[in-house]
Design a protein around this nucleic acid. Structure first.
Lengths: 267, 267
DNA sequence: CAGTGGTCTAGACCACTGG
DNA sequence: CAGTGGTCTAGACCACTGC
């Protein structure tokens, strides 16, 4: 038998139309209560019921809403916090994670300078080289789960550290969710690009996959990065996903690794 | 006040000489019970009290030993399992993680073929090119927390996939813990090198850090990997650590990325 | 001080494994 | 069937934050 979530007393946004959560199908794959709670919280996050940086209801409050014990809510929140979707702060509350926090400004940028930690080289300079609307190639369409020819935004930018151009990025975004994004807004924004996505478009990038290769600088790559043509560069192809694993960004990065390296931890 | 672990009834290996765990120092940094339990289990792992692949005592048993509730032991084990040091299997028990399991054969190798998943290309061919005893350079000594000139083993090997030499690795190991390691034993061993380290030397690599760069193939690199000199290669410098964060291996890898890519997940 | 998350307990019951 | 880990509860108390 499945553990079930009784319908809440008062209709609550997150639960208003949640059907009774039982799987009495043929193969009733067991789904513990806390996983169902986790799914409900995830839905609320996805629907933007609580915005990035905001505090979500307390454990006690959620336990009352869901009519389960505090421990069960706790386990659901624990997992979401482990996935960096929520942030617990003792004595204060639980908050929706955001890219705007200073500590996680570079959570998705694994390039660090050879000597000294990040920041020792001063703030990064971000320069938008290009920002235009085009139609998706088959490759871009596949990565973003679009159809070939669908409208996309293409952005090219260069990041410089300590005055040295170090990263060249080509970025593709589906045009529809990013309606209204312009080169001006990108250029004027201080801070991480993903933070802008959150505040302006309510799109939070929660995870990403990268394919990393070594290539020789070609075309205008060597010009924009101020290196000799043929210089080995790190090619970083990233697809970033939002809450429900929808691909929302394709990014081809080219990193100089003569003064920086890509840092990775294996566990 | 600190939560304290009462001394166990019977002297148990893991706890025989554990002092009463209180921090009544000036700044009594609060350390919850389950963290202290975690530390004790970690000590047992480090001392090899339970070998890789073996089952550790049940939660109930450990709770009795430590004179705490099952839930407290559970939280300690949860964290160790999350760090891939233990492996929980419902209905069976909790086991010391190992590199010998099929599923985690390649947990530390992030290079995957462009098309198809790993394994689709058949088994990897491992060829030991060199294995000799030398003295540590300052660089190697620093990475392995040795003194320059200390004895180290240096290994060079080439990994081939589908008949194509793809990975060249230079490996340095401290000579003392690896006493008795020879080219023959390396060549004859089927399976992951880290699995051999476990079974033959009781040294388990639990985590590692990698510095990744793009370089141009030089010297004999291009010969051993059968590519043109100057071909861009992925340079992967890894330091691997055992249970208590002692560095135990330095490995410089050179990956061809024309048919494979380095895969990374960001979360 | 009240409110939050964090720890710890004791006990009941469930799901899974293997003999 | 017994033994294991997994879930869930109810309650007590602690540590931290901010008013």
């Amino acid at each position: 038998m499945q553990p079930t979530l009784a319908p809440p007393d008062e209709p609550i946004e997150a639960l208003a139309e949640s059907p009774p959560l039982t799987n009495q199908a043929v193969a009733p794959a067991f789904s513990p209560l806390y996983q169902q709670i986790k799914g409900l919280i995830l839905n609320s996050l996805r629907e933007g019921q609580w915005k990035p940086g905001e505090m979500i209801p307390s454990e006690i409050e959620l336990a009352a809403r869901f009519r389960v014990s505090q421990g069960t809510v706790r386990k659901a929140i624990d997992e979401l916090a482990a996935e960096n979707l929520l942030l617990r702060r003792q004595g204060k509350g639980t908050f929706v994670a955001t890219h705007a926090e200073q500590q996680v400004q570079f959570r998705f940028l694994k390039l660090v300078p050879d000597s000294g930690s990040r920041g020792s080289e001063g703030p990064a300079k971000r320069e938008i080289v290009e920002c235009r609307r085009t139609s998706a190639s088959t490759e871009v369409a596949k990565a973003l789960a679009l159809r070939a020819g669908d409208a996309v935004l293409q952005i090219r930018r260069v990041l410089s550290f300590a005055g040295t151009p170090t990263i060249l990025e080509d970025i593709w975004l589906p045009a529809a969710p990013f309606k209204g994004l312009t080169a001006e807004r990108l250029s004027n924004y201080q801070g991480a690009m993903y933070a802008l996505f959150e505040t302006e478009f309510n799109l939070r990038m929660v995870r990403a996959k990268e394919k990393i290769r070594a290539i020789a600088a070609t075309d205008n790559q060597h010009q924009l990065l101020n290196v000799a043509p043929g210089t080995p560069l790190l090619s970083v192809q990233r697809v970033a996903y939002t809450y429900k694993d929808e691909p929302m960004e394709l990014r081809h990065g080219y990193y100089r690794t003569d003064t920086h390296y890509y840092h990775n931890e294996l566990g």
